[in-house]
Design a protein around this nucleic acid. Structure first.
Lengths: 212, 212
DNA sequence: GCAAATTTTGACCGATTGGACAAACGTTAG
DNA sequence: CTAACGTTTGTCCAATCGGTCAAAATTTGC
């Protein structure tokens, strides 16, 4: 009995298109209300179709969420994957921080969707965190540790450094309404992110440069 | 017509006790599932009483949440309130960061409850963010800015500095399952927070000390 | 001890939820 | 044209939701 691909998943043109529309709508709704707070009706309306029609393309609400999270993790980890051993450590880290901040600015819904999932205890992505994510972080932490051993950046905990970069950048997406409420309407979104970029650059990069 | 207190709120001993039990249970449930994801039945069961009995002490689910958020904000902002103009800037900021990290360690449910509320767009606490919170942050940012003007710490954006301290410390409560998944079971909770404290001290404090 | 006040409960309600299903509607290959 | 296939819809359902209510059980003030 030959081992075939688990799912052939032959898809019509319409199926491909409609699934895409649904996922886009679901991202909007899930990011705003969380998994349990979101309803299939809301997603269906946002996608411009009836509920039974939506359930023709996805078997269940959970199915939509799982598909969404799988895709999300790929694009979400892309910046960290690009962190490279070759090249100047400071430049590499500066680029990573900048890319992460740009993602918080350009894909806030994705950030909030992810934050929601983790906040609820990651019931649907725990295996991915312990597998794929942990491996990637460990690998990159070793690279950073190497830089520290060579005295190219100051010595500190690479894992917590990565956590701090995640926390500070994603904060501008996840806690956006709080940031806006505190800063007031003086500066628009562009200004806020410019200021944030400057601040994070100073905080992390200046702090990491080897003394003398 | 004399202006009296808006609500006399004469409370029985039992009322005081039971309301406390309910709030404790609600904190647990709301922190894990968010407002919409939590059900009155869940809270009632966690509080060890029947649903109608719970609704005898709180008029509605919303009523519980509002009460919880009001109390939360007070204790949540306490560390920032303590940030004082007198005394050494470095010492003050070090204490603030340590206190915030301790709160993330000792009151993770409170942190997650707050994160949930902000993530959903702060529908029930927006006025408090734009009022009380903004005023407090602005006041403390001015103090920090004063320190910078006097050359006692390096010049940077005080508001974003506060955001960064919030983000990094609360990360250990809100994203706890992710942190644990990535770090693995090697070190217990104590070890994680020790490492985090050391890292954050280095990141913020070393970075803020005036050069030469 | 006892009446009044407070607390607790079981039964119930309308609204909303995720999802099922068959019938109807399109579309296209022969 | 028509049979086969893919798509869409209206209707329906059981479960769960937040919340009500009257009656029963308990506590409290005197």
């Amino acid at each position: 009995m030959p081992m075939e691909a688990v799912k052939p998943k032959r898809r019509t043109r319409i199926q491909t298109e409609k699934r895409e529309i649904i996922l886009e709508a679901a991202l909007e709704v899930f990011a705003q209300h969380g998994f349990r707070g979101a309803t299939i009706d809301q997603i269906a309306e946002a996608a411009g179709m009836s509920k039974p029609n939506l359930l023709y393309y996805f078997r269940s609400k959970e199915d939509i969420h799982v598909t969404l999270m799988q895709r999300l993790l790929e694009t979400w980890l892309a910046p960290l994957r690009e962190l490279d051993d070759i090249g100047d450590p400071i430049t590499e880290l500066r680029s990573y921080i900048r890319r992460k901040l740009e993602m918080a600015r350009d894909y806030p819904r994705e950030s909030r969707l992810f934050a929601n999932e983790i906040l609820q205890g990651a019931p649907r992505v725990m295996p991915m965190l312990e597998g794929e994510l942990k491996e990637l972080v460990d690998e990159k932490a070793q690279i950073i540790r190497g830089w520290m051993r060579d005295g190219r950046i100051v010595r500190t905990d690479p894992w917590h450094l990565i956590f701090a970069i995640w926390a500070t950048t994603q904060h501008y997406a996840d806690f956006d309404v709080q940031v806006r409420a505190v800063l007031g309407p003086d500066r628009g979104a562009e200004g806020r992110f410019e200021d944030a970029a400057r601040f994070l650059e100073q905080l992390f990069i200046e702090g990491l440069k080897p003394k003398r």
